[in-house]
Design a protein around this nucleic acid. Structure first.
Length: 893
RNA sequence: GCCGGAGUGGCGGAAUUGGCAGACGCGCUGGACUCAAAAUCCAGUGACCGCAAGGUCGUGGAGGUUCAAGUCCUCUCUCCGGUACCA
């Protein structure tokens, strides 16, 4: 009995496609064709296998690709694996087995599942970030970044060899030059805190630390500085922000990225604190006068000096309202500014702050805390002394790590001032922006006002509006050498090293002296020596020191000798983000062992035309990848300033009860089980039918059953289920479609084509259901109409479409059949039904010719039997006739 | 708190961007087929009033603009996602 049986036809067609290499993409787009690069965010191959969320985006791009091939486009549609990651390393620590073994087993499982779903990937391009042949080029790109400095004037990255060396540096000798260059590289080293857990003998990621103790085992964790690699993504902040305007991304995601970059403009201002030895205010006023005249000559200093506290503010117009200052607990001036009586309290406070993670510092700190240093700074605009406090609501990592506090016009400062009874001086008059009562409170320092207004208590500036004041005072400060216009970003430089084994090794060598100590000189591994593979380890257990696990690599790996010099390899590894920053480029030329990607191929296929993935990567992955891409663009490796032209975020698939799917809730749907019961076509179709791609939507088993029923109906439309052998339904006839049949067919073609273009797959499927409903009711179904329908169905449910296509007598795949074209002449209705309203309420319907104009429409409505009845004795005030839509009579009486 | 997104039948969701609200699917009800069930097919299915013809209400809530509002404006409530003292 030839019933619809996905379990037999799906493997059959998957084997067919593989054997005939149906979906292998050309090396270059075929001449004269449009190119389409459709990309899925490649998965991390976890041990749990594919989640139902994965096939959602994957099916969407697959539909687009399959349709595009039939429309004659050159399509590249690859898949791979983002396979570095912590779980494999943890498994390795537990079992002693190399993480590669588990990683490859997981990849094999993912590959099986992906193939089971019938995606039209070009599997010959498959790659994994853990492939040595791949990360060789990840390392190569790192070296490009390492070899680049950012020319702020030209706003672009340039080779380090082109970095101008100032004369004083040049005079200081070669080491000074090298140090100067290293300081300017986009990849540079710094000391940054890590979460060191002595009990586990390893460094933990932020997610692994909860409330100061390790998530695993519950051991204490301390934050300690360690040498790390940073990537200067902040140098590209402006370009990363500006270039968002040119890409076709959801506005929400663009906004998310803009906020993440968080550009703000304001001023840096120096507050005089006196030379280190002179201490607090006593003799300071004399020093202040001296300093003022010195600054008048020198102007604002490029780098901050020891005799001033440099602050950043977005509100230089509130300078007269600064009643205290705050520096971060980690600020280098804390000790020198703390007077003896405050020393104990200060030490306790700093220790406490150091023990807190960034998270604790914000989330738990409902109440503001801080300690007075005992010292004062002098406000450059009026010479008055301002007390300096230390408080952890000021972050060392933003701006200068120091602020002037203006409690009258900043919520946080206001809160702090109330807590510690500090004076509050209003310097912005809100005017009528608030109620008169509130205005009085603001001016009395009893209420905080952060908006714009008019300057008050600000000397000669009184009366200026906020915007004017900002501008005026910033230039005044600049001319006196007290301040300058400044820009800041929330975006931080990218901490690029991890203390892990299972990641890309850095292609960096540290020079050693005769005693085996690092000289501080660093060199890149020569390009021809790439890749730097991971070394053999006997086991993966932590060695108990904060240094990365690679520190216990064998000497022949760890200590290479080049030109007679002994080096120690960099033992940090790259974070998981690294591999996903450029995989879209490698997919275009995955086996090239001469270059990362052939520039001719790159130019032909880039940018990615459609990039689909989860919104969880809306910020970091996309920002990091864009950053790398821009560096590669500046260095001439790629030809486009942006990698991803159109971006779509698929919505989350929730459990049946509208909650997140999770193991602990026990509501996880396994794609293997769905395929076993209903087949891959039903899974694909259901995930597309659930609702709009971008929306979050709950899973429904009955819904899966529903689309499965549709595929069954489509099957019976064409196949005689009751026959002994596979044969077409007797209703299939070889004749021209009638006008009605053609109208249904061509409307279906029109809507499905348009819906695929706009990624409205749910409505496309509805249209195909309407088609089957119509033809199921027909006892004659023209073969040509059925064939067109199968072509429309094939991107969504490719296996069953192929099988039915074959049943209709075709002996090869429909994957390259021309996409059906809708003929507008055939979609036209002869006559249409028009609603006739009285005062906006439908009172009758009339049948008119389809291209009846407004006048004729109104006339037809007036003469309608029911209308004449209803309009009797009423006055028509106005008649509105909209051709093709409705007629509305506005009546009185 | 701030920033996004969304609220439409019993459920998932459609609605030429201002023009007949509820396409399509699920579920439900009735019928056909069957000894029976499943499957399948046919019909119905927003609520309320009515024997019916027909009418009234109806897109989270309250106002407004308009001949006409799910769609535009103002206020407001709820849910989801992101973010967290960025000076």
């Amino acid at each position: 009995m030839p019933r619809y049986n996905p379990a037999t036809i799906e493997p059959k067609w998957q084997a067919y496609w593989e054997k005939h290499q149906t979906f292998v993409a050309p090396r270059m787009p075929s001449p004269g064709t449009e190119k389409l690069y459709a990309l899925d965010m490649f998965p991390y191959p976890s041990g749990d296998g594919l989640h139902v969320g994965h096939p959602e985006g994957y099916t969407a791009t697959d539909i687009v690709c399959r349709a595009a091939r039939m429309q004659g486009k050159s399509v590249v549609h690859p898949m791979g694996f983002d396979s570095f990651g912590l779980p494999a390393e943890e498994h390795a620590i537990k079992t002693g087995q190399h993480p590669r073994i588990q990683t490859e087993a997981n990849i094999a499982n993912f590959r099986r599942q992906l193939k089971m779903l019938g995606f039209s990937y070009d599997w010959s391009r498959e790659l994994a970030t853990t492939d040595v042949g791949y990360f060789r080029w990840t390392q190569w790109i790192f070296l490009q970044i390492y070899d680049t400095w950012f020319d702020a004037e030209q706003q672009r990255g340039r080779p380090i060899a082109e970095l101008p060396i100032p004369d004083d540096v040049r005079a200081a000798g070669e080491d000074a030059i090298l140090a100067f260059q290293d300081e300017h590289r986009l990849a540079h080293q710094t000391e940054a805190p890590v979460n060191w857990c002595p009990a586990l003998g390893t460094v933990l990621a932020n997610e692994e630390v909860v409330g100061g103790i390790s998530e695993r085992g519950g051991h204490p964790v301390v934050r300690m500085p360690l040498r790390q690699w940073m990537l200067r993504i902040t140098a590209y902040a402006d370009r990363l922000e500006e270039d968002l305007s040119g890409v076709d991304w959801p506005e929400g995601i663009k906004l998310l990225q803009r906020n993440w970059i968080g550009r703000s403009t304001g001023a840096e201002v120096d507050f005089y604190i006196g030379a280190e030895t002179s201490g607090a205010t006593g003799s300071a006023s004399a020093g202040f006068e001296k300093w003022k005249s010195a600054r008048a000559k020198s102007g604002f200093l490029r780098k901050t000096a020891d005799d001033v506290l440099r602050i950043y503010t977005t509100r230089p117009d509130t300078l007269f309202g600064a009643t205290y200052m705050v520096i971060a607990p980690e600020h280098p001036f804390v000790n020198r500014l703390t007077t003896r009586d405050n020393a104990n309290a200060m030490k306790a406070y700093r220790d406490q702050a150091a023990a807190k993670s960034d998270l604790d510092r914000t989330e738990l700190a409902k109440e503001k805390t801080g300690v007075f240093t005992g010292s004062y700074a002098i406000n450059p605009v009026n010479g008055s002394p301002v007390p300096i406090w230390v408080a952890d609501y000021v972050l060392i990592s933003y701006g200068t790590g120091a602020i002037m506090a203006v409690p009258a016009h900043d919520e946080r400062d206001f809160e702090f001032a109330q807590q510690f009874f500090l004076p509050i001086t209003a310097v912005v008059d809100p005017g009528d922006a608030v109620s008169p009562l509130e205005r009085g409170e603001v001016l009395a320092g009893e209420r905080c006002f952060v908006g714009d207004g008019t300057a008050a208590n600000s000397g000669k500036y009184d009366g200026l509006c906020t915007a004017e004041f900002k501008e005026t005072i910033t230039s005044d400060l600049a001319s006196q050498g007290f301040g300058r216009h400044a820009v800041n970003y929330k975006l931080r430089d990218w901490l690029f090293s991890r203390q892990r084994f299972w990641g890309e090794p850095f292609p960096i060598l540290h020079e050693l002296d005769a005693n085996g100590q690092p000289t501080g000189r660093v060199r890149a591994v020569p390009e021809e020596d790439l890749p730097v593979d991971l070394p053999h380890l006997d086991d993966f257990k932590p060695h108990g020191r904060p240094e990365p696990p690679l520190d216990k690599a064998p000497d022949d790996w760890l200590y290479p000798v080049i030109d007679g010099k002994r080096y120690k390899r960099e033992t940090n590894t790259m974070p998981q983000w690294a591999g996903s920053c450029w995989y879209y480029l490698r997919f275009l030329d995955p086996r090239n062992d001469q270059v990362a990607v052939d520039p001719v191929i790159e130019k032909a296929w880039m940018p990615v035309d459609l990039y689909v993935g989860g919104a969880e990567h809306a910020v970091l992955h996309l920002l990091y990848a864009r950053f790398w891409h821009k560096v590669l663009y500046d260095r001439g490796v790629v030809s486009t300033p942006e990698p991803f032209h159109k971006l779509v975020n698929q919505g989350m698939i929730l459990g049946e009860n509208n909650e997140k799917m999770s193991k602990s809730r026990g509501n996880v749907i396994n794609p293997d089980a769905i395929v076993a019961e209903y087949g891959a076509d039903s899974l694909r179709l259901y995930e597309m039918f659930m609702g709009p791609l971008e929306a979050a939507k709950p899973w429904s088993m009955q819904g899966v059953n529903g689309v499965h029923g549709f595929l069954n109906r489509a099957w019976r439309l064409i196949i005689d289920e009751h026959a002994e052998t596979m044969q077409t339904n007797a209703a299939i006839v070889d004749r021209q479609p009638t006008v009605d049949e053609n109208r249904v067919l061509h409307k279906t073609i029109q809507f499905v084509t348009e819906d695929i273009r706009t990624l409205s797959f749910n409505t496309a499927i509805s249209r195909m259901m309407e088609f089957t409903n119509f033809f199921t009711a027909q006892t004659e179904r023209p073969r040509a109409a059925m064939e067109s329908f199968l072509l429309l169905l094939s991107p969504f449910a490719p296996h069953v479409a192929e099988e039915l296509w074959q049943a209709l007598g075709h002996d090869c795949s429909l994957a390259r059949e021309p996409w059906p074209e809708s003929d507008p002449a055939l979609t036209k209705e002869q006559s249409i039904e028009i609603a006739v309203q009285i005062n906006g309420k439908v009172r009758s319907k009339i049948i008119v010719h389809a291209d009846c104009d407004a006048k004729m429409l109104e006339a037809a409505a007036r003469t309608d039997e029911r209308m004449t009845e209803l309009l009797l004795g009423k006055t028509i005030v106005k008649a509105i006739a909209v051709p093709g839509r409705l007629v509305n009579f506005v009546v009185k009486g």
